[in-house]
């Protein structure tokens, strides 16, 4: 199935609440042309869906896996290109990217095999644009220079990994009762290990405090972190469960990662998808 068709149909939240949230949000940007808007809008606000309501594939295990595969395609190609770019310093950065690249490739293969094993055709690999229409130059293809390109490589990796963690988490409920739940959780925790290491490579903590995107992260990545400040778990405000360090706002937000809806994860990924 065509990736755009799949993404167009990926509208769980719209089905649930009957609203077209992305279109509403996007419309606030008014008369910006679509092309200009893509370059200007933050992660997560890109206008993707042509159809506000469509037959959804997302609220079932197959839809969840197809979304996961799409995100893995994105990560896999990103790390491949990063390793080929010559931008990465040797030593720890290159070692880290090689290890992550190996896992993302394995995840792509695993998910494709899982879908095929279930008699489902995996979504096709999209064409990606990691410059987002020229906003970034992470592979130094356009001559931004190694230092800036490397900073962008790290920032994008952080955004992709933190998004991946949130996206898998958001799909867990759709996999409840499915044989794919455990493998999805097993990928989810690997993405979290990756995220922690990339963040630490950037001089940040391995975990997310409040909704802070962290030092040096482009403002455009804020959508990846919005909602991470949540401190109410299972109806309980966890800051009220005790005093001192463990129950501060900071620690209470760090101690729990938050999910992304399929819509929000799709919107973030779509920013990097040409077709």
């Amino acid at each position: 199935m065509n990736i755009i068709k799949f993404l167009d149909e990926f509208t769980t939240d719209n089905l649930i609440d009957g609203k077209t949230s992305r279109r509403d949000v996007f419309s606030k940007f008014g008369a910006l042309s679509k092309k200009a808007a893509i370059a200007a809008v933050p992660f997560g606000l890109a206008s993707v869906p042509k159809k506000a309501l469509a037959q959804s594939m997302s609220a079932d295990p197959v839809g969840a896996l197809q979304l996961a595969l799409t995100l893995e395609y994105l990560e896999d190609e990103f790390y491949d290109l990063a390793l080929q770019s010559g931008v990465l310093p040797s030593g720890r950065p290159e070692i880290v990217y090689m290890q992550i690249s190996k896992h993302e490739q394995a995840h792509v293969d695993f998910l494709r095999a899982g879908l095929e094993g279930a008699g489902v055709t995996p979504v096709e690999k999209p064409t990606f644009d990691f410059t987002v229409g020229g906003m970034f130059d992470p592979f130094n293809d356009n001559g931004v220079g190694q230092e800036t390109a490397y900073a962008q490589l790290l920032a994008l990796a952080q955004a992709f990994e933190d998004t991946g963690v949130r996206a898998y988490k958001g799909q867990a409920g759709n996999l409840l009762g499915s044989d794919f739940l455990t493998p999805a959780l097993q990928i989810h925790s690997v993405e979290a290990r990756h995220a922690s290491e990339i963040r630490r490579l950037r001089g940040l903590k391995g975990w997310i405090t409040n909704n802070d995107r962290g030092m040096g992260m482009p403002e455009a990545t804020q959508a990846v972190y919005d909602g991470e400040e949540n401190i109410v778990q299972g109806g309980v405000d966890v800051t009220t469960l005790g005093s001192d360090g463990p129950f501060t706002m900071e620690a209470s937000s760090e101690a729990y990662d938050e999910p992304l809806s399929g819509d929000d994860a799709t919107a973030i990924a779509s920013l990097f998808i040409v077709n």
Binding site: S189, A192, S196, Q233, D257, P259
Partner: peptide, 11 residues
């Protein structure tokens, strides 16, 4: 799910 990914970040 919210907790396990934090454990994985720790690990």
């Amino acid at each position: 799910g919210k907790i396990v990914s934090v454990e994985a970040r720790h690990a």
